[in-house]
Every structure is written in structure tokens, then in C-alpha cells.
Computed example of a mutant assay.
Amino acid sequence: GARVNDRAVVAPSRLEQNRLIIHIDIDTAEIGKNIGPTIPLVGDAKLIFESLLEYDIQPDYGTWVEDLRVVKKNCVDNRTFHEGFINPCLFVEHLTERMDEDAIYVADVGQNQLWSADNYVMKKGRFLTTGGFGTMGYAIPAAIGAKMAAPDRQVVAVCGDGSFQMSFNELATMLQNDIKVKIIVMKNMYLGLVREYQYNNYNEHYIAVELGDIPNLEKIAQAYDMDYFHVKSMEKMDRMIDEFLACENSALMVCHVYRYDKVKE
């Protein structure tokens, strides 16, 4: 499903080392374009996978799972979050603990995505995101698609105040088609991940990352007939999450995060 370019994979050439690579693509020009496949397969991916299902393939993931356990055990989170605002890591943890067992959680792109991936509590639901492709504005349309495919399941889209502003058309689609989706905006008034990148790599020389305290998200919710919630303190967070998840209408919750909180130290 990917071209294995340097946007999706940091060092594509490393994949060629001691690995068997099966490259499937309907376009012959893409085969071997970025890495050399062991087995090139040209054709419709659906038909190829249907053919592969005819074989008894029993992969062993034991070593990989054990490696992941070691990595997780040795990772120590040294991040600190500004008092007086919402701790985004705890917010995601508490939110997903309270969501339905089979709920669908959709993360957008940016700091919200990484906080979500780090702290999402896996039960029997689904976690949807775009990985490293950087497709801002993904969460709300993806959540609409998920809700239409599984109308009886709880669907929550999480985005930043930058990516949220790329999806106003989808709010109209939700209203016009009576699609009940719950949306959370982690608001820090910045393109947070880009600001963090400029902090780490350009000596805090910031360009085009400050969003300011606009737009008025409460009025946006009113314009699209959505219930509105605004959580600013950890003391009220759990109660407001419960109210947000319990409401039957489409809902917008603004989660106020300190503007300089980072995803890594």
C-alpha cells in the first residue's frame, strides 16, 4: 500500500538487508523503484491476496513481539506537562478507557497523533491513522467513513486545531446526512509538531506555525448543530469526557493543551 519512499520509511535501503521483500503493485513502473524486491508481483492487490490465501502460511512473530516488549520496558517517559492545562497523554488514556469496547478511534496528523499512538488503550475496537504520511485533515472524513461502515459503533475523531480547520466541509456532510461523529480538538494554537520540529532543529526559529486563538470553535459547533464541550482542567476532565461520550448528537470537544508541550524531549 505504499511506495516505500523516504517520507514513509526513514531509510528504505535498510529494508533490503536480510529480508525477503514481496512487492505488489498494479503499475510495473513502481516495482523496484525504491527498493529491490525479492518477489515482484504485478497485478490487482485484491486478486493477489485472494491467491495468497490459498496457501497455508504460518508466520512466526515471536521474536518480533519479544523485541517490542524489551523496547517498551526500557522506554522511560521523561516528559512533563504544564500545570493548569490538560495533560494530553492522560487525556487520551482516560478517554479510551471510557470508550466502548468496540469503539473506533481516528487520529489525525500532528502532536495529537503521537499522543494518541502512545496512550491509546487497546480493547476490542480499532485505531485508525495515516502513520507517517502527514495527511492533515484525515481524521474527520475517515471517521465519517467508519461511522457509515459501522453505524452502531462509537466513533471518535481526534485532531489538532490546525488539522481541524481543514475539515469544515465534512462538518456539513455530517449534518446533511445525519452522521453522528464525536470530534475532539486538542487546541494549543500552534501547528504543534512543526513548531516542535523547528524548536529541535532550527534553534527556535519559528515560521508559519502560530495559529492564534481562532476560530471560535464554540460558534463553529453551533453553526453545525453540534453539542459543545470545552475541557480546561484535569479536575473536570473525566466528568466532561463521560458527558461527551454519552451525548446522542454529534459533538465537538475542545481539549486545551499548553502551547509548548512536546511529544518528545
Rank of each mutant, 00 (worst) to 15 (best):
H94W: 14
H94E: 15
L95F: 15
T96G: 08
D100A: 14
D100W: 11
D100P: 04
D100Y: 09
D100R: 10
E101W: 03
E101C: 05
E101H: 09
I104C: 01
I104Q: 00
Y105M: 05
V106D: 00
A107C: 02
A107R: 00
A107G: 01
A107I: 00
D108E: 02
D108V: 02
D108A: 01
D108G: 02
D108N: 02
V109Q: 02
V109R: 01
G110R: 04
Q111Y: 07
Q111M: 05
Q113W: 10
Q113C: 12
Q113Y: 13
L114D: 06
W115E: 04
A117G: 07
A117T: 10
A117D: 06
D118S: 13
D118C: 11
Y120C: 05
V121A: 10
V121W: 08
M122Q: 13
M122K: 13
M122A: 14
K123D: 08
K123Y: 09
K124N: 15
K124F: 13
R126G: 12
T130G: 06
T130I: 09
T130A: 07
G131F: 13
G132Q: 11
T135A: 05
M136P: 03
M136Y: 04
M136H: 06
G137T: 02
G137Q: 02
Y138L: 10
I140R: 00
I140W: 00
I140S: 01
P141M: 07
P141N: 08
A142W: 01
A142M: 03
I144Y: 00
I144P: 00
A146I: 06
M148K: 09
A149Q: 11
A150D: 04
A150P: 00
P151Q: 08
P151V: 10
D152A: 12
D152C: 04
R153L: 11
R153D: 07
R153A: 07
R153C: 10
V156E: 04
C159S: 13
D161P: 13
D161V: 14
D161R: 12
F164I: 11
S167E: 09
S167L: 03
F168D: 12
F168R: 11
N169I: 08
E170K: 09
E170L: 06
L171Q: 04
L171T: 11
L171R: 05
A172N: 13
A172G: 12
A172L: 13
T173N: 09
M174A: 09
M174Q: 11
L175G: 02
Q176E: 08
Q176A: 06
D178Y: 03
D178M: 01
D178A: 05
I179M: 00
I179L: 00
V181W: 01
I183E: 05
I183M: 09
I184F: 08
I184P: 01
I184D: 03
V185S: 03
M186T: 04
K187V: 00
N188T: 07
N188F: 02
N188V: 06
M189A: 12
G192D: 03
G192P: 03
G192R: 01
V194K: 00
R195M: 07
E196T: 09
E196F: 04
E196S: 06
Y197G: 12
Q198A: 10
Q198M: 10
Y199E: 14
Y199A: 14
Y199T: 15
Y202G: 14
Y202C: 14
Y202T: 14
N203W: 09
E204R: 10
E204L: 05
E204K: 11
H205I: 03
H205V: 07
H205R: 08
Y206R: 10
Y206Q: 06
